[in-house]
Computed example of a mutant assay.
Amino acid sequence: MRCDYYESDRCRSCTVIQTPYEVQLSAKDVRARAALGESGIAWEPPVASGESGFRNKAKMVAGGSVDAPKLGILTSGKEVQDLRECPLHEPAVAAALPVLAEFVTAARLVPYDVTTRRGELKYVLVTGSPEGELLVRFVLRSTESVPRIRKHLGWLTQTLPNLVVASVNLHPTHSALVEGQEELLLTEQELLPMRVGAVELALRPQGFFQTNTPMAATLYRLAAEWTAHLEYRTAWDLYSGVGGFAMHLARDGAMVTGIESSGEAVAAATASAERAGLSGVQFAAGDAGAFARHAQDVPDLVVVNPPRRGIGAELAACLESSGVGHVLYSSCHVDSLAQDVAAMPSLTPVRARVLDMFPHTGHFETLVLLER
């Protein structure tokens, strides 16, 4: 895939974009096999992504000026490179970015300058659903601009009729974090429906969802297929997010418990399960490791989908000593995955597959089934 931003040296985020896609995919598969080994593991062919138009979210740094705003990335020189025409974004997200730039001007939202530490608007965050509906968040330094955002919100929703959820995130401190703790909802609707296969998930403003929806759908489908033969009556979904794995693992006679640190994600997952009528699925806010350590009973199946750092030595040791029969591990960082698997020698990888969640980069998702 060609990209004008890359070729003109304005953005180098897609580090391997000039490598033919088939070569990219093969290299990721080779790397995963090298990290985990091949002996005794039924490796399935890697799952390819679309090469463009696959990102369902845009995390755009705000820059420029009120009358000439930029939405893009922060360069090494602390300036913002506009990326409104990035070819990676889904069509609905890409179409929204120029409209949101107009909104910055209309609502007089002063972009934040990281060098002077002045201004209000830090980021514009956009997420698109499979149906093309949008969740838009404005990350602000303070509430100073909120009245103007509310005043012009009618114009924005009229111009972007597929905008169904909008909010302001307050992030007063100067830090590398994208967002703060406090969220102000601007619309009556607070949940963005995210239909993935036969399951409708939901996303609240501060909830996490996989960046590549088609790959997420494949990931959840594989999780259901790989565990279909297991006779589990209890299952844990640790780092459960908005409930994708838990809801796909739901079955009659089984209780699936999802544990997630984000209260926003737990609320969204609970609402999704209730709408779907899944009485055998429950979610709770908490630390995955602490939950596993203090649990009274051992489940038949554990699913883990941790951040890049992996589950860590403490949770790995807990699962190793617990006696759980099967662990389904979804990882976005194969090195931490390999380290965690090595820390659970009684749980042997028997099935694995690479899913290219992040084309044109060195990152990818790896799904592994381990059994005792």
Rank of each mutant, 00 (worst) to 15 (best):
E22D: 15
K70T: 07
A166G: 07
Y6C: 03
H363Q: 14
A246L: 02
E264D: 15
L370R: 04
K151E: 15
K28D: 10
T19M: 15
A92P: 04
A95L: 02
R141H: 08
P69Q: 11
K151S: 11
E264K: 06
G64P: 02
H89S: 02
L203G: 05
L319C: 08
S262F: 12
K151F: 11
E365V: 00
A166Y: 11
A166N: 09
Y220C: 00
V110P: 01
I311A: 11
A338P: 06
T211S: 15
G253L: 04
A95Q: 12
S279T: 12
A352R: 04
A27I: 00
A285S: 09
E200A: 07
T127E: 09
L25E: 09
G77F: 12
P307R: 05
Y5G: 04
E260D: 11
L355N: 07
T19H: 14
G310E: 05
G53Q: 08
P161W: 12
E133H: 14
E90L: 10
E225S: 10
T116N: 08
A217P: 03
W155D: 08
L121R: 07
R108G: 04
S261N: 14
G325T: 04
G119R: 04
A271L: 11
A216F: 03
A217E: 15
T159W: 06
K122E: 05
A288I: 01
A48F: 09
V104F: 09
L134V: 02
L134Q: 06
A338W: 06
